[in-house]
Amino acid sequence: MMELRLKPKVSGLSIPLEAEVISPDVVAGKTLREVEELRVYHGNRVETLSEYFEVEGEVAPNPEEQLIIVEGDVSWVKYIGAEMTAGKVIVKGDAGMHLGSRMTGGEIIVEGSVGDWAGAEMAGGLIRIRGDAGDLLGAAYRGSPEGMRGGCIFVEGSAGYETGTGMRRGLIVIGGDAAPFTGAHMNGGVIFILGRAAKRLGAQMKGNGSLIICLGEVEELLPTFVYDTTYTPTFMRIYLKTLSEKLGIKRAEEYIGRAFRRYRGDRAVGGDGEILVVERG
């Protein structure tokens, strides 16, 4: 992969910068000069990328071969990697809102934490967040009926409110704790929670194979989720192995062979989704 490095010239801007141009799709095929001239939005002003970043390295002819490394904390930059289709972005610190929103392919790695709406409505690709995620990770934008439609998000830390709202397909793995309303309106897709799951999990979940798997403690389930059985699903073995091998979550293997309590709901919407909670001990 050809490496393009963006070094922030400023830090902690109070008015965030909108820079959806930080994406392999936009950068690839341009000259360094053209990359420097790319448009970014600061409040109501239109400026160029080079006013905020030093641009170095190489530009690839096509997005598949493009790696962009953002060297430093950019919690003030929104839309990094939004709508990207291929290539790779690495952020060496925190990132702002809407990271990787609506992306369809490629990979984003954030070494710090991300703001709200990361991976919102994404349809493919991989987002890996070493820190925490804000609210509405992989969610549906307001007024839109469907959230994440494919791809994978792995947050090593905790995730905020309404993670995976309206999720249709794809996989979200939360290494830490999950805030209330995780998996609300889910209508397909899978969410793994390794830490503590807060209440209102899967609120108004419809079905379509929606599945929330809790490997940690669960604060409380809604009264509209009904217990039906305790079993050791065979597919879980494959899932847990995949988490361990593909995402490097070694501790997932500890749960292989463990029994799960299965709850179905959300009856409030006549839904038929499932929440599996690992049996203690």
Binding site: R200, A203, L222, P223, T224, D266, R267, A268, V269, G270
Partner: peptide
């Protein structure tokens, strides 16, 4: 939220 959800489920016949 829980109370409203429960009412909904009951209205739906559960």
């Amino acid at each position: 939220y829980e109370l409203l959800s429960a009412l909904r489920a009951v209205v739906r016949g559960y």
